[in-house]
């Protein structure tokens, strides 16, 4: 099967890869580009572990084909920190223990950042509904929701 040549921007850098037509963006990120921070939990868009930003929109990368990233920008968990400087959400998740096994964490962080980028003062209900597509089986969500709200408060105060 002929592979497709795709040129895209990943975490601010131009990237190229070859992918088969049926490969998902998730497959491509993990297996072709080597960015394994984006996780596969279900491959059906139900768990959110593979959340990435595609042209500024929050998507499940398992529901996007690799070829669809042609000419677009992709942001993954690997691009969230600025060098050694963690994003305030990453820092708050550590301080407030908003992760246990950590497997859902990359997807949760990407989704939470997408929320705070558009709404810097979300209510608890807004956070809960925004993150309803990101399954976490360890935490019961309590510390995740608090960490997102506390980050928002810090960022508003900054």
């Amino acid at each position: 099967m002929a592979k497709h040549h795709v040129t895209t921007t990943i975490n601010g850098e131009e990237a190229e890869y070859l992918c088969e037509p049926q490969e998902t963006l998730l497959d491509v990120l993990r297996d072709e580009v080597g960015l394994t921070g984006t996780k596969e939990g279900c491959s059906s868009g139900d768990c959110g572990a593979c959340s990435v930003m595609l042209d500024g929109r929050l998507v499940c990368s398992c529901l996007v084909l690799g070829v669809e990233a042609q000419g677009k920008t992709v942001e993954t968990i690997e691009g969230m920190a600025d060098g050694e400087e963690l994003h305030p959400l990453q820092q708050k998740f550590l301080e407030e223990a908003a992760l246990q096994c950590g497997f859902c964490t990359p997807g949760v962080l990407i989704a939470a950042k997408a929320l705070l980028d558009t709404n810097n003062n979300p209510t608890e209900t807004e956070v809960r509904y925004w993150l309803a597509g990101n399954l976490c089986r360890c935490t019961g969500y309590d510390k995740i929701v608090r960490a997102v709200m506390d980050t928002a408060a810090d960022m508003r105060g900054a």
Binding site: R30, D31, G34, L35, T36, G37, T38, K39, E40, T76, I77, E78, M80, A81, L86, Q90, F93, L94, E95, A97, L99, G102, F103, T105, P106, L109
Partner: peptide, 23 residues
């Protein structure tokens, strides 16, 4: 005390290696 977990940064930056992450 509520220290920062030693494996924490790996887990919020995507560096942590889970079962399917090794090639």
């Amino acid at each position: 005390t509520r220290t920062i977990r030693p494996d924490g940064v790996d887990k919020v930056t995507g560096r942590a290696m889970y079962g399917a992450d090794l090639t």
